[in-house]
Design a protein around this nucleic acid. Sequence first.
DNA 1: CTGGTATTTCAGAAATTTCCGAAATGACCG
DNA 2: CGGTCATTTCGGAAATTTCTGAAATACCAG
Lengths: 184, 184
Amino acid sequence: MNISPLRQEFILHFGEMGSRWGINRTVGQVYALLFLADDPLCADDIVAALGFSRSNVSMALKELQSWNLVRLRHRPDDRRDFFATPDDLWEIVRTLVAERRKREIDPTLTKLRELAMTQPAEGDLAARARIDELRAVIEQMTHFHDELNRLETERLVALLNMGARLNRMIEGAGRLIPFRKAKE
Amino acid sequence: MNISPLRQEFILHFGEMGSRWGINRTVGQVYALLFLADDPLCADDIVAALGFSRSNVSMALKELQSWNLVRLRHRPDDRRDFFATPDDLWEIVRTLVAERRKREIDPTLTKLRELAMTQPAEGDLAARARIDELRAVIEQMTHFHDELNRLETERLVALLNMGARLNRMIEGAGRLIPFRKAKE
DNA sequence: CTGGTATTTCAGAAATTTCCGAAATGACCG
DNA sequence: CGGTCATTTCGGAAATTTCTGAAATACCAG
């Protein structure tokens, strides 16, 4: 135990939000604790801080590792595992988006491509067209995400900061190279 | 029952993905059914098609309405409610993003702003700075999302299609108006 | 009002997820 | 080898979520 009120409130909030983010309370709280920690923590630090069982913390850490949200650290002459979150918030954002895409989008894209391979039955022509349309939209977004991922963080932030200029910029680009049609 | 294999597979997939998307199997399947349906369906059509209980379907429809993912339709001389998904996929994407932001981001942003108002204790200076940094990053992204939302769909699609030109374009804009620093 | 139909609410059953303590595993050291 | 420490696995308890059938509500037509 022994956590300041500021940290306490932050950690409890992350625990509550956990279910909306597709993780559970324990995982959310462990992540929040690590996120604010001044130094890497070991499993028992987390047990002491949050009061979960040792095994629950172990599971939570495994889950966070599967999300690539925590980094493993070691100290000399100490064989315990210590955990920390990346310092760079943009790296965290990239990871979150990438992992959510992997879990929430990619399987569906695979399925849609699979369905697009089959010969549609008589009454399925409209449904099939709708599936194809959905596949095209998702592909368009994932390709854009790939593009964004290729940008250095400085450029990414520049894009985010573009605000109202964005509109004019697209217009400008559109003049140079005509818009493609929406349905690829 | 009586659903073609194509629809069947699509619907079952949406049911399975439901839990990853923060909805349940019933809601996922009902949405998938409506998404592919050639015409609006009433609750009993859905019961007949998917075999869920009437009350479960009622709950699922209520949930989908709370997400703004379905539209209510009526037929003359028929007081039953019929449901359909919007034809425009980009409208669906906008709705999904907006609703997820409302549920997953906005409450946290509110909490972070709240925490940013308090006076940090002695040992909380670093934690407080980290919270502020997180708030700033989220605000940057939500402002960008607001900007994207303001774009007509044609422009939005043009941006998504920009591909590798994106990088050069940011560079170009950067020359005209210098990059802002990442930490606002 | 009465009867018929559409929809929602609700209590509890069923299923799933979360969580713990105990036992097992593994890694290191003398 | 044993012994110690860190971590993981596992069975089942506890909590939560999902789902159903029955009852309640709402709405309309006559």
